[in-house]
Design a protein around this nucleic acid. Structure first.
Lengths: 230, 230, 230, 230
DNA sequence: GATGAATGAGTGTTCATTCAT
DNA sequence: AATGAATGAACACTCATTCAT
């Protein structure tokens, strides 16, 4: 018991910090309160952590990194798929969107990739609900305050590749940058909204197919001039 | 001159407050700074306003209300349209989604209702860019911090009516509440994201048709079991 | 009584600050102690002063300025005397130090300039003994921590002019810069040491003639190769 | 290896302390920083030293002592010289200052005593420039903060003897105590100023003859009533 | 011999708010 | 109608020091 006391105190501090940050957000959280709740004195926090922000980061760094990296690897994977040129049989400028969608969903059926990634994300994200909440909603004033924007802009690059490819095949002019951004925004916030509203992971996962299908509809509709698929 | 001085001072205070809140957000804004910039002393603010939050509210109340009410009246209007039962020719449980869409877009062609509302919203929202920014991004810590959620949950009721009607006609079981919420989230955030990224109203409006079509695709795809309109 | 309370409080604060700074020096002084002794709360100091250093400066600025300016004007005056070329009858390179001293002390007898300046300095410096003490001994950590150096380097320029002139007349090579600096150091510290040791102004003034004569001896000996005026 | 490790750690600590004290002065130095730079933990310092001040003292005690003792022994030596009564041929009350100076400088030519002491001082003082700097400029808050005063008041006793003797021979009344103090101040600060401004020992020594001659002029001028050696 | 953890009082500073005038 | 003075609690953070191990 004795030798673990320090680590226990560190954890007490982190636990109290998590609670306080969740309740008040980073900026309004009080180190005093955290220490008091951890049964320690104000100075103690500075033994373990450089400053208030380091305490916050210590809570969520690993978590934030794993979320970020999962998205990175997903995007890298998709990029490779595009480079494999599944769409290479299609004739540039003369293809129509239905042909593209057929290929897209073939692949999707095989891999169900989007949903697999979705599930992985949910494993992590729901694996520590509080930390994710901290990261997404309570990090204003820290280096993580733009975390969502980072996710969006990463996903944006990925979506842009698809848009470029499809526009090229369809003979359309490029999708406007903001629309690409918006699509990315849509996707990332779909996950985030789901997370924030549905506290139970399995229930969230049950929602995924519908949301994905709907997002895909939103996405592909971009490439059609017709009012809507009629 | 004398009787208007007071009103002038009120306005100076509000102007300085707007600047400060925009720069730092509600919580981090300093009343001291506001008063200094308004050329007044700290006490003055308490003559005009009950406290810091009342000052913030005084800035955006009208603006927030008008946005809120516009959405209300839009929803009421749509509700009436539904009650007029444009879809009454369709046979319950035996209609398919294409039929519904035909009617939906007929009406839309006549009215271009969604886009008209969109334009009205933009008139208000871009009419005072700063106040909208305050409301959407700088209101944490005030009664308005959940303003977006309020919009979403109002829009939710509206979307729910459509969903109910369509499901009924299609013989589907009801759309899950969260999916309805999410659709609403999608729509509201589409406006908000557009606003935050595109500072120029006309440019924003140019984006609307694409975004609306895409949102409609997302919406209608909900009612189809098929992977996607193929 | 009521309307003067604020100014009284300001003075209480300054008085308490003076006491605390004198006892502990700027860096080790505690604003809390100052406020407590002034019968005020910690925040009060920030109504009157920007920060701790501004409180210190408020105490001694005028005082420091008047000392500095007195020295400035003295030096300017002496410079003009040199420009009047009292020494113009002497032949460059062929004069000896006794001739120079004769002229120097002629002027000095008329004006007793050095001592008059000395007396003025003492009027100011002893006029508020505590403030001078603050400035000279307790200002580490403030903008005044190098005040003495400023005085020395100003006096240095003045002494340099004399040295240049005399060396020129004597046909000597220039006095080394450090020696000029040291002479300046000598002079300024003579005043400062006197001040710090002799708390009574008149007693201090009684010492001046001896010290001045001795300093002059130190000064003129620089220009002689002989062991000493024998 | 083991038994020297402790000593090595002591030295690491002292080295890091020297650096920190030089940079920030005693009061503003941080034990934390010292320990960190020494690669040790905060507690370690308290094994070797009683407290912060003991650490400082451990650095400079020997150095300060040797400077102090050199001055002591010099003064003792001079006292003996005086007791040998080199000036015993002179008639009390009827001697003039020139006669005294002749003897003084005779002795000085033989021994060049002042300058020899000066060189010894410089060997020590420049032998460890950092420690001397610590002692002279960074010791505020420690028992050494008045070290210079101690030197001055010791040298004072020495100068007092000369003054007494000379006054006696000259038939003058005693030099005032403060003037004696000031002369001592002059001398000690001449060394200190030289040290602080001229980092190179040999260059400093080159300056000594001029400074000494000048100081001697200052000294002997004290015993003359005439305006100055004319 | 030295660590590493923890203390607790201390720092200067900022804040929204109050209130007599 | 508005000032200007003052409050007092709160803030993040630093410090020299202690002590069980």
């Amino acid at each position: 018991m004795n030798q673990s006391t320090t680590e226990e105190n560190r954890i007490k501090l982190l636990t109290a910090a998590k609670k306080e940050f969740l309740e008040k957000g980073f900026l309004n959280a009080s180190l005093r309160t955290i220490c008091k709740n951890a049964g320690m004195t104000t100075g103690a926090v500075y033994f373990f952590f450089k400053d208030k922000e380091a305490l916050f980061s210590a809570l969520i760094k690993k978590h934030a990194d794993s979320i970020y990296e999962l998205l990175c690897s997903h995007i890298t994977a998709e990029k490779e798929m595009l480079e494999e040129e599944k769409y290479s049989n299609l004739e540039k400028g003369k293809t129509n969107i239905s042909d593209i969608m057929k290929i897209y969903f073939q692949h999707d059926n095989e891999m169900a990739d989007d949903m697999i990634v979705g599930q992985k994300v949910f494993d992590i994200v729901y694996g520590n609900y509080d930390l994710t909440l901290l990261l997404l909603s309570k990090s204003q004033g820290t280096e993580y305050e733009n975390f969502i924007d980072k996710l969006i802009s990463m996903s944006e690059k990925h979506i842009f590749l698809y848009c470029s490819l499809f526009c090229n095949l369809l003979g359309m002019k490029e999708i406007k940058p903001y629309v690409v951004h918006w699509l990315s925004h849509l996707m990332i916030n779909t996950y985030i909204s789901l997370f924030l509203h549905i506290k139970d992971k399995n229930e969230a996962i049950e929602h995924l197919p519908v949301l994905m299908k709907s997002l895909q509809a939103a996405f592909f509709s971009i490439f059609s001039d017709k009012p809507l698929f009629l």
